[in-house]
Design a protein around this nucleic acid. Structure first.
Lengths: 229, 229
DNA sequence: TCGTTAACCTACCGATGTTAAGTTACTTAG
DNA sequence: CTAAGTAACTTAACATCGGTAGGTTAACGA
């Protein structure tokens, strides 16, 4: 008992997993990592020993399922990205106007970031070195709801309501802007930020006023709605 | 010689400082920290032993001048914030139109971030826990050129060229947007970002089109005008 | 029943931030 | 000129970190 993880293990783990059930521990590790990320704030503040203690095993056991601490964190992130994507998907559900959808997503995005700062930080404000070699950007963009945003912008563009820019550029810019608001608030809480919704509304107002033509055409009145390639 | 800092100390430090000149080492420590931040990338990747080696002293000597590694990093940041502010000040020098000044600053801002990613990361993308208790936000905002941006926006507002929003809100939003572009590019380099200037121009175009009245008066020629739509 | 091996554990490594307890050498009072 | 006082360091060590080497236990198939 040289390891100092002698604190009461809050896990209900009964004992060793049966043969072929090693993946169970992997699952528990990821869940413990998510819990600790949410409570302690950042990946640097949680340790392999913490995770192991929470699960109820010793720290080296982690390495039977993950090659490194980074991999554990990243596995947690992948799960969280999916959760995040679902939040956005729910926010946009039932809305027909692409502009409305974008606004709803932006609001949901910012609220997720501010309500769960630790998770948002890990998901979108971590350094590239933390991402594995075979990191699939496309999957990230999909999980995170960016592709849906892209679709909305293209729909705007194709219906002639987008005043400036290439749809991809505009999509990235929109994402960047909301992310900028979220991350600056999180990183500099001592700055007297206005109420988040206020900033968000201002952003919508500003970008919409500039990006979108002011006269909104009635739906379907114009050319093909979604025929970009 | 138990410490492993046996590598050739690249410092030209002659020996012990004379009495009352202890501040010299403090200066050298800060400069070494800045060098290491710029080369290695993040605060986590540099160590007290690294800094000490570069300066040519042993690691505990650092603690004669700083209470913690965090304090060393923060002292480096304070210096860098000032440098950054000067870059922005130079960018805006000689420009009379507030809109032009804002655009020049935005460009300089993004280029600083992308050219010196490690420093930008430390300056604006580090966690609040790294900031000491008595962190002076006002001084930061001043150093970093935010107050000048605020002045520009107010000037726009007072001359009636600002279409929407409170000047402070607008200033924070502008900062957030450019920061969002910078930080997302830095944190997700695998995403196929458009050329930075392109995104920036789009941002200017979008925000200006939305935030500022479309008819720009020649300098001082006209009184306040506030059209909408 | 017995060998194989998945699923763990014990013991340890070097590196990290940090501290305790010296040691050296400049300054200055006497 | 000397010797105490102390600023400016160093040596040695601490606890904790991520990670590894190698042993132990127990579920399964033959």
């Amino acid at each position: 008992m040289t390891d100092t993880e002698t604190g009461a293990a809050p896990s209900t783990r009964p004992g060793r997993a049966k043969r072929g059930e090693g993946e169970l521990l992997r699952e528990e590790i990821v869940e413990a990592a998510i819990d600790l990320l949410a409570s302690t704030g950042t990946a640097e503040r949680i340790t392999i020993r913490n995770i192991a203690e929470q699960v109820g095993v010793t720290s080296p056991s982690i390495y039977l399922h993950f090659a490194s601490k980074n991999d554990v964190i990243f596995a947690a992130c992948e799960r969280l990205w999916q959760d995040f994507g679902q939040v956005l998907a729910e926010a946009r559900a039932g809305l027909n106007d692409p502009l409305e959808r974008m606004q709803a997503c932006g609001t949901a995005y910012l609220h997720f970031a501010l309500d769960r700062p630790a998770l948002y930080r890990v998901l979108f404000m971590s350094q590239p070195v933390d991402q594995p070699e075979d990191f699939d950007v496309q999957a990230l963009l999909d999980n995170v709801g960016f592709l849906q945003l892209f679709d909305d912008v293209r729909e705007l563009h194709d219906s002639g309501r987008l005043r400036v820019g290439d749809p991809l550029d505009v999509s990235l810019l929109l994402w960047s802007s909301v992310h900028g608001v979220a991350s600056l608030i999180l990183d500099h809480p001592k700055i007297p930020w206005p109420e988040p919704n206020r900033t968000l509304n201002l952003l919508f107002e500003a970008l919409a006023g500039g990006l979108v033509t002011h006269s909104v055409p009635p739906e379907g009145e114009r050319g093909p709605l979604r025929s970009s390639g």
